[in-house]
């Protein structure tokens, strides 16, 4: 626990909750705090812009303005079908972020449930869950996702999110399990059992709050990772369907060497956008990680 100073005792309702400690750490870390601020502004403007813009107008093919370089009319130029890059960039960013957020939330939910159950109950339940996790983790997940995406009869965004989640919950579950296992051995959990508290309540109201900081850290880092994974799959042509352009869609134009070499305005802004998103989320994640791990905490 963080060493609280003596005068804090007067503040009767002060809580040393994980979230609060994390928030204070974040404020101390200028880079992380700046990232948070930057990210908020970026996302809010992207979402507002994508809400106000007409997606159909952007998706309209215009053969008279193919591969235009950046100009006043098209700030970031146009692609092979004469579509505005800036517009696609904005839609791509909001789509990529939203979908990564969905995948991260879903995997967090599955991973958390599996990890808590396996760690708390142990025994056979733990064994079964852990064997399944070991197995999924030892699969070549990128390839499996690609095959699943190809095979699935009707390819939609929902299906894509589900397929990704099948392969991405395991790491989280393993982490949560090991933390739960350690927490379960503490006497306060045993005390709760002797006090007649039911299992589900012990898990939700005792163990969960005590591992909350790790969950938040993991969520942040996973969010960044999933943006990378989603755009990479879309880049390969096995991610988001055509109807939902992602940042990876723009970058995938660069698979054409001519675009890669001569028409940087098509792919480079999207690549930079991914980098900026992932970097700022990661800076926050790393700061949170330091906050959660008392050993590395900065004074």
């Amino acid at each position: 626990m963080k060493g609280e100073s003596v005068n804090n005792i007067q503040l009767a309702k002060r809580s040393p909750s994980g979230i609060k400690i994390i928030w204070q750490e974040l404020k101390k870390d200028r880079l992380a705090f700046g990232s948070l601020f930057f990210l908020l502004i970026l996302l809010v403007s992207v979402y507002i812009a994508s809400f106000m813009m007409d997606q159909k107008a952007i998706a309209r093919v215009d053969i008279y303005s193919i591969y235009l370089s950046p100009s006043e009319r098209n700030l970031l130029g146009t692609d092979y079908a004469g579509r505005d890059i800036l517009g696609q960039l904005i839609f791509g960013t909001s789509n990529s972020f939203t979908i990564s957020l969905c995948i991260t939330s879903l995997t967090a939910f599955i991973g958390l449930s599996a990890g808590l159950i396996a760690g708390y109950f142990g025994g056979v339940v733990d064994n079964v869950i852990m064997r399944a996790i070991d197995f999924i983790m030892s699969l070549p997940s990128t390839m499996m996702i690609i095959v699943f995406v190809t095979v699935v009869p009707k390819f939609t965004v929902t299906n894509f999110i589900l397929i990704m989640s099948i392969f991405l919950w395991t790491g989280k579950a393993r982490l949560i399990r090991s933390k739960t296992l350690a927490e379960r051995e503490l006497e306060y959990v045993q005390a709760s059992r002797t006090l007649g508290t039911p299992h589900w309540k012990i898990i939700l109201s005792h163990i969960l709050p005590n591992i909350s900081s790790i969950i938040i850290v993991n969520f942040t880092l996973n969010l960044a990772g999933n943006i990378g994974l989603e755009t990479a799959l879309t880049f390969l042509g096995f991610g988001l369907p055509e109807s939902t352009p992602s940042l990876g869609t723009l970058i995938s134009y660069a698979r054409n060497p001519d675009v890669l070499e001569n028409k940087w305005w098509i792919w480079l802004p999207a690549a930079m956008m991914i980098l900026v998103l992932m970097l700022s989320i990661n800076f926050m994640g790393q700061a949170l990680k330091r906050a959660a791990d008392a050993r590395q905490r900065r004074g």
Partner: peptide, 22 residues
Amino acid sequence: NYLGFATPLFIFALIMLFVFGF
């Protein structure tokens, strides 16, 4: 490490190809 951890492989590879290849 920070940068490397946050950079997706495919973007880094594309930039490498763009710079050192093309």
